[in-house]
Simulated assay, not measured.
Amino acid sequence: MIERLPDWEQRLHDYVSALEGASFAWGTLDCALFAAGAVRAQTGVDPAADFRDRYRSAAGSVRALRRFGAGTLAATIDARLPGIAPAFARRGDIVMTGGIAGVCLGARALFVGEVDGQPGWVTHARPAWQQAWKVG
């Protein structure tokens, strides 16, 4: 199991802050790579290194999950991080709602996705989380 670095909270803060104003982009900043980047920031280990810059579209992401992952986003995360009940997710853990992965920031989680059809940042409260994975 990968472990969080001693200064993981500052690293997570710096990672999220550095992305302020960034735009959604398949293969570089989509929900999966955003969540994986949060793991990398906290642990120094990139669970999605084999996916980065390998696709540029939704269809490409599906092909990449089949080729490099476990077939689906949830199954791929399951293969790389231990699953936990969403109620037990803590700051920095990975969560999923509606098929998109995000990062737990406490009572809410941050996701990169769409707001009213436009790419942007989305938050969802804990009751909306359907799955969760422990980081470190």
Rank of each mutant, 00 (worst) to 15 (best):
A32E: 00
T28E: 10
A35V: 00
R91A: 12
G106Y: 08
G117S: 11
A101F: 07
A38H: 04
A38G: 15
A109I: 00
A58V: 14
A75R: 15
D53V: 02
D93K: 03
H13P: 01
A38E: 01
R90C: 02
L105C: 09
F111Y: 13
R56N: 13
A89I: 03
R40L: 10
A70C: 14
G113P: 06
A22T: 07
P86E: 14
A41I: 01
G69T: 03
A58G: 13
R91W: 07
D7K: 02
G71R: 10
C31G: 04
A36F: 01
L19W: 07
E114N: 11
G113E: 05
R54C: 15
G92I: 07
R40H: 13
A89S: 07
S17V: 03
G37S: 02
T76P: 10
G44R: 09
R4Y: 05
G83Q: 13
C104A: 15
F111W: 02
R56F: 11
G117H: 14
A79T: 05
A70K: 11
M96H: 03
A59Y: 10
L110M: 13
F51Y: 13
A101L: 14
R56L: 10
V112T: 12
A64D: 12
M1R: 11
F68L: 15
R67Y: 09
A25M: 12
A48G: 11
D30Q: 06
G113M: 06
L81C: 06
S17M: 06
R90P: 02
G69E: 13
V112F: 06
R108K: 14
G106V: 04
T72M: 14
A89Y: 04
A79C: 12
R66A: 15
D46H: 07
G69S: 10
D30C: 08
A25H: 07
W8M: 07
S57N: 10
A35T: 00
R67S: 09
R80Y: 01
R4C: 08
G69I: 05
A59C: 05
A41E: 07
D50L: 12
F68Q: 13
